[in-house]
Simulated assay, not measured.
Amino acid sequence: MIIRFKSSKLENEETVRSFNKDFEKSQLSEEEFTNFKKGVIGSVKEIHLNNAYMFFQDFDNETNEKHTLEIVNDQPVFLLQFVISGNVSFSIEDEASTLYTLNQNKYNLFYIPASKCIYKYINHKKKVLNIFFTETYLIKKMGACFVINSKKYKQSKKENQIYSFFNNGLTINSQLLIIVNEFLNCTFNGITKQSYLESKLTELVLIALATNNLNLITNKIREEDRENLIKTEQYIQANLKEELSIDKLSIMAGFNTSKFKSGFKEIYGLPVFKYITSLRIEKAIQLISNQNYTIAQASYEVGYKNPQHFTVAFKKKMGFLPSQLIK
């Protein structure tokens, strides 16, 4: 996969990035650019994690000239875009009549076929986080139902058209803004940083898309049932230390166990226990890395009575032992 960038404000206007299939990469790579033309101050930061590539634009254009960015991708991609400040509009070059706009404090998920897109930035100051991934990554995180149940997406894909999942975008709430800031301001190094960023990216995708996935879900789940599932998920996040059995959570949601498991996976894209494990591992990483908890203390705080069971679950999910966080 090749993506070409051509910015009207960078001294080195054109940049070419080559990627493996599905943005596959074994190690974290980062790069930052500050070589803007006169009158522009700030930076563009690139981060490439396994299965995802992102760049963060944070700069102030003191001139009256509008900033444009051409992005050419030779294969279809998804773009999860967060506009923290400024406004962005874009269209495929030969279809300028179809314009997509995302205003300040909004985010959206776009399907972009192989094409050349022209992005226009109207405001002087801009902070925009762009996250690229493929359908494989989206299904891995959100479940196949996220795309299967969207007839408009499938039609756009068939016709090689851009598709906007959330119309004019959704509001970046305080929870999402905190996650974005934690992702962009990580102070770890090496494998710890890579693990932290991967877990934060997963959290960001889940919170941004799963919470607002209700518009894409079939009518099998009633509105009242959806609300109960969301409340149950919020309880899970707030009580990771407690025993979270299927029976207990099903009763809380007002479902039988079978209906609860299928409904939860339909909304959050993961089976209940896999979802809980992801949250527990993520919180444990924060406790060990940021608050100097021992492995035993962290495992207890996230609901594991036996530290060995925690270590096995951690190794299976992260690919390395929790002791490496301490080292």
Score class of each variant (00 low, 15 high):
Ser85Tyr: 12
Tyr100Ala: 09
Lys154Cys: 01
Phe166Thr: 01
Val83Ala: 10
Phe110Lys: 10
Phe90Asp: 04
Asn87Met: 15
Thr136Arg: 15
Phe82Met: 06
Thr101Trp: 14
Tyr121Trp: 05
Pro113Lys: 06
Asn108Asp: 04
Pro113Ile: 06
Leu138Arg: 00
Ile118Lys: 13
Gly169Ala: 04
Lys152Leu: 15
Lys127Asp: 05
Lys154Ile: 02
Ile131Gln: 00
Cys117Pro: 12
Gly169Val: 06
Phe166Ala: 00
Gln81Trp: 02
Glu159Pro: 07
Thr136Asn: 13
Ser89Gln: 14
Lys158Asn: 06
Val88Pro: 09
Leu109Tyr: 00
Tyr119Ser: 11
Leu138Glu: 03
Ile112Gly: 05
Lys120His: 13
Ile122Ala: 14
Lys151Gly: 09
Ile84Tyr: 04
His124Phe: 09
Thr101Pro: 15
Leu170Trp: 04
Asn108Gly: 00
Ser156Gln: 03
Ile92Tyr: 09
Leu129His: 02
Phe110Leu: 10
Gly169Ile: 06
Lys152Gly: 10
Ser91Lys: 09
Gly169Tyr: 02
Gly86Thr: 03
Pro113Leu: 01
Gln161Gly: 05
Leu102Lys: 11
Glu159Gly: 01
Leu138Pro: 05
Asn167Ser: 09
Ile112Tyr: 01
Phe82Leu: 07
Thr134Cys: 13
Met142Cys: 15
Gly86Glu: 04
Asn130Lys: 12
Tyr107Asp: 04
Ile112Ala: 01
Gly169Ser: 05
Asn87Gly: 13
Leu170Asn: 05
Ala144Glu: 08
Ile118Arg: 08
Lys126Tyr: 11
Glu135Trp: 08
Ser97Trp: 10
Val128Thr: 14
Phe146Glu: 03
Gln104Arg: 11
Phe146Ile: 03
Ile139Gln: 15
Ser115Gln: 07
Lys126Asp: 07
Met142Arg: 09
Leu129Gln: 04
Thr98Tyr: 09
Leu138Val: 03
Ala96Glu: 14
Gln161Leu: 07
Leu102Phe: 10
Asn123Glu: 15
Ser150Val: 00
Gln81Arg: 10
Ser156Thr: 00
Lys106Glu: 06
Asn105Ala: 07
Cys117Gly: 12
Ile122Phe: 11
Ile84His: 04
Ile131Pro: 02
Ile139Asp: 11
Tyr121Asp: 06
Ser97Val: 15
